[in-house]
Design a protein around this nucleic acid. Structure first.
Lengths: 216, 216
DNA sequence: TGTACATCAGTGAACGCGCGTTCACTGATGTAC
DNA sequence: TGTACATCAGTGAACGCGCGTTCACTGATGTAC
């Protein structure tokens, strides 16, 4: 029952009754709202509105609001994982690798601050998405574990695991702290945020016991 | 115009028309709601309700909801500062001091997880409370700076400042990461969260250039 | 010591709002025959 | 190739809710005289 005589082609590409891939679109819109208007503006209705769809439409793709948020967070973790993989291609020495990992990690968090926060909030509140067995979140550690230069990823080496966690703490803490205006001066003084990141990371050494024999 | 014949003493201590110190009470209730029901349950109305006061009463003490939240966060920063001061009384060596600071910092964050998060959220969103000139937030750095063992608090030594930030990153990151279920296994394996904290901190070394001459 | 009055800190009803979610529905699509 | 029909993915109106905030008010307190 479209207007009978007008040609009515798929129209600029939204606006059709069946959307095509509304699920993906909703996640994308959610990410955008998150970064442009912030967490508090991220309502299911706002997402539907901005996707040019009725408020009920999302329920065909997500159980409820939390389900959408989970999906967004999950996409975030996947993107971070990719970033961390990229970080490993250039460097050769352990020291460089650590700097590269740290730099990439922080850059990701800083370029997607609201997403990054959501990722952590979602993970904290609900545990990691069950179907991944916590894998998504552990991946960051696995990467770091690789970085640290010793042992295979899932090595049961306790020291290695602790070192990986230590690195992750430093990265996460740095990413989180950088959002404070308090450090703007310092950033400027040092010639940019990246320089500050490098400098701070340069002051942190991850200490690893020789993994020959575990020292409990 | 109280009930004419009944004795009507201050009653168990709430319930009087004039509360006494409603401002303080509201902050306390807010903190409690925060920790027992979480951030999302922290509405102005809920605070008023739990303080046994009408929804309009808080407006005599706070400009709006954000103002109350700021006050709560501020109390949090003050408490953290105290904790950090306490952390400095025992230890003698720099190494011990660092461990003590880290331990105390993390313990505070873990004992008041929702407060701790609110503190960071408030600071991020609104900059630090202006009348403090950012002092509240910097205090953590100042403490660490002392810990690191060199130089007077407001030393313009850049390396020292960076080292202090590095330490703070590690503390904050660790505190934040510990809330993940993901690490429950590891905590158990190591005999408790405190042990894990000590172990992770033991893998982190804050590296400081000799502060003789600044190396920019 | 007693009274008038300004000020302060409450009340409680009401406002408008946007939210998450549900419901009965309808248009579009694809498959069986 | 054409038609019937099940299924899917939308619509749009409505629900109840709790929220932040405002308003005209009133009870309690303290001060001046």
């Amino acid at each position: 029952m479209v207007a009978p005589m007008s040609d009515d082609p798929p129209e600029d590409d939204a606006r059709r009754y069946h959307h095509g891939d509304l699920r993906r679109a909703l996640i994308a819109v959610a990410r955008q709202i998150l970064e442009t208007e912030g967490q508090s503006a991220l309502s299911l209705r706002a997402v539907a509105r901005q996707a040019k769809v009725s408020p009920a439409a999302p329920y065909h793709h997500f159980k409820d609001k939390a389900d959408l948020l989970d999906a967004v967070a999950q996409e975030g973790w996947a993107a971070l994982e990719e970033t961390m993989a990229d970080a490993q291609v250039g460097p050769t020495t352990t020291r460089d690798l650590m700097a590269s990992l740290g730099g990439h990690y922080v850059a990701f968090a800083r370029q997607n601050p609201a997403l990054y926060q959501l990722m952590y909030t979602q993970s904290r509140d609900r545990g990691m998405p069950t179907e991944l067995g916590g894998g998504q979140d552990e991946s960051a550690d696995r990467q770091v574990r690789t970085v640290v230069g010793l042992g295979q990823p899932d090595s049961p080496d306790l020291d290695l695991e602790l070192a990986a966690i230590a690195a992750r703490c430093a990265f996460h803490g740095l990413a989180d702290l950088l959002s404070f205006k308090q450090y703007d001066d310092l950033k400027a003084r040092m010639g940019g945020e990246e320089a500050l990141v490098r400098a701070v990371l340069g002051h942190l050494t991850i200490f690893i016991d020789v993994p020959a024999e575990e020292t409990p």
